[in-house]
Simulated scan of single mutants.
Amino acid sequence: MKITVDEDKCCGAGQCVLLAPEVFDQRDDDGIVVLLDAAPAAGHHAAVRESAAVCPAAAIVLSEDA
């Protein structure tokens, strides 16, 4: 799995950080997503998929074949 985030789309809702704190964080000044791990271990895949699914701005893009 490979993850990319579109910071321009991010609205700072923070659901990704709540669901997968090992993979996502937020900038202190504006709450925009920070990608900590673009290729997380298999144990994090379910949480990352859920993060992408609940992102209100669709700022998280997953590539499953990476």
Results as ranks from 00 to 15, higher is better:
Q15V: 10
D8P: 01
I3Q: 05
Q26N: 08
D25G: 12
L19P: 05
A52N: 09
V33R: 04
C55A: 08
S51R: 09
A59E: 08
Q15W: 14
V34D: 04
V48K: 00
P40I: 00
A38G: 11
M1N: 04
P56I: 04
P56E: 04
A57R: 05
G12C: 07
A52V: 08
M1G: 09
L62Q: 11
A58G: 13
V5A: 07
E7T: 15
V34N: 09
I3T: 09
D28F: 09
R27T: 08
S63I: 11
K9P: 07
A52R: 08
G12M: 06
H44G: 00
I60V: 11
L62D: 11
E7M: 10
A39W: 08
G43Y: 03
A52I: 07
D37K: 02
V17S: 08
V23D: 01
A13R: 13
S51Y: 09
C10W: 06
E22C: 01
R49N: 08
T4K: 12
D8W: 05
Q15G: 15
K2S: 11
A46F: 05
D29F: 13
G43T: 03
D25V: 00
P56V: 05
I60H: 02
A13W: 13
S51C: 10
E22N: 13
P21D: 03
D28P: 11
S63F: 13
V48Q: 00
G43A: 05
A66R: 12
A52M: 10
E64V: 08
L35S: 01
R27S: 04
A58V: 13
D25F: 01
A57V: 07
A46C: 04
V33I: 15
R49W: 04
D6S: 10
A53P: 03
S63D: 15
L36T: 05
G31I: 01
A66N: 12
L36Q: 06
E64D: 14
D6R: 07
P40W: 01
D28W: 09
L18D: 12
V34T: 11
D29A: 12
S51E: 07
Q26A: 12
A52K: 07
V5T: 13
D37A: 03
A47E: 06
C16V: 02
C55M: 04
E50T: 10
G14W: 02
D25Y: 03
V5M: 07
K2T: 13
A53C: 03
C55N: 06
G14Q: 04
G12D: 08
D6L: 03
G14F: 01
A53I: 01
C55Q: 02
R49L: 08
G43Q: 05
L62C: 10
H45E: 09
L62I: 15
I3V: 13
D65E: 15
A42H: 10
D37E: 11
F24A: 00
L35H: 01
D25W: 00
H45P: 01
V33N: 06
E7W: 02
P56C: 08
A20E: 02
D65L: 13
F24H: 00
H44P: 00
L62S: 10
A47K: 02
L36V: 03
D29G: 05
H45T: 02
A66Q: 12
A42E: 15
L19H: 06
